[in-house]
Amino acid sequence: MVERYGNLSPRAQYLINGTPLSVSPSIKDLGVLMQSSLKFNDHISRIVSKARAKVNLIFKCFFSTEPGLYSRAFSTFVRPLLEYGSVVWSPHTVTLANHIKGVQRNFSKRLFIRCRIPYSLYPDRIAQLSLPTLEHRRLISDILFLHKSIHGFYSYDRTNLFKLSPLARSLRRSHSLRIVLPYSLPKSHSNFVTRAIDRWNVLSAEFVHSSPSNFRSHILSLPSISFTSDSLLRL
C-alpha cells in the first residue's frame, strides 16, 4: 500500500512482483491515522468515536452515585484515547478542538445527572470534579516535548522547527534557552513549537534548566490559569 503526502509528491506507480500497490488516502502509523493531506480530521473523528463509546460503557458498568469513581474511570480509560500522540495531531481549528472537548463536556453532564448534582455550566462542572481542560493537557504535552527536545533527549532534525536565541542582555522575562522560529510561518500552521513557544519563552530560568522529571512534576502541578503569560513570569 502506498500513501502520498502533499500535492507535489511524485505519482509514480510502485509494484511488488509485478503487482501494483494500491494508493491509500490514509494510513495508521504508531496509532496515529496519517492522511495524505497532512490533516488529522479522520484521526480526531476516530478517537472521539472510541472515547464516546468508552464513556457509554462506564455508565453502563457503574451504578454508583460517587462522582470521584466516574472521574477516575474517565481519567484512566477515556482520556488516554484523546491524548495519545497529541504532540503530532493536536487540533489546529476551533471546530476540531470543540469536537474533542465535547467528550468531556458530555461525560461531566451525564455524571452530574447520575450523581444527582445540581446542574452547572461546563467550566464549573470540571472545576468541581478537578478535571483540567483537554486543551490545557495538550499544551502541557507540547511543553514537555519541547523541554526534552531542547535538552537533547530526542534525536531528530529540529532545524526547521526552532532554534535557540537567547537575548543579548539579561531580562527578568528571558533565559538562555529562549527559542525562535527559524522562519515566518502562516498563521494556520500548527506544531508543538508554534503552540508552546510563547509559554516556553516566559518560563523562569530555573524552571527550564531543571531535569525532565522535576520539570514534569512542576508543570503538572500548575493550574490552567498559570499558563497565562503574567502567571508564568512568576514561576
Rank of each mutant, 00 (worst) to 15 (best):
V2L: 12
G6I: 06
A12L: 14
Y14L: 06
G18W: 10
P20D: 03
S24C: 14
P25E: 00
P25A: 05
S26L: 06
I27G: 03
I27T: 08
D29C: 13
G31A: 09
V32I: 15
L33I: 08
M34D: 03
Q35D: 15
S36N: 06
F40D: 05
F40C: 04
N41V: 05
H43K: 11
S45W: 04
R46C: 11
R52W: 04
L57P: 00
L57C: 06
C61E: 07
F62I: 15
F62G: 09
L69Y: 04
S71W: 04
F74A: 00
S75Q: 10
L81Q: 14
W89K: 02
W89M: 04
P91S: 02
L96A: 14
A97P: 00
G102V: 01
Q104F: 07
Q104D: 09
N106P: 00
K109C: 13
F112P: 03
R114N: 08
I117V: 03
P118F: 12
Y122V: 05
Y122C: 01
P123I: 05
P123H: 03
R125I: 03
A127L: 15
L129E: 02
P132N: 06
T133D: 08
L139A: 09
D142A: 07
D142E: 08
F145A: 08
K148R: 15
I150H: 02
F153G: 07
Y154K: 01
Y154R: 00
Y156R: 07
Y156Q: 06
R158W: 08
R158P: 01
S165N: 09
S165A: 09
S165K: 08
R172T: 11
S174Y: 07
S174Q: 05
S176Y: 10
I179A: 03
V180Q: 14
V180Y: 07
L181H: 07
L181K: 09
Y183E: 13
Y183G: 09
L185V: 15
P186E: 04
K187N: 10
S190N: 06
V202K: 01
S204A: 14
E206L: 11
V208L: 08
H209V: 10
S213L: 15
F215D: 01
R216E: 15
S217M: 00
S217W: 03
I219K: 10
S224D: 15
S226E: 10
F227Q: 03
T228R: 14
S229R: 15
D230R: 13
S231T: 04
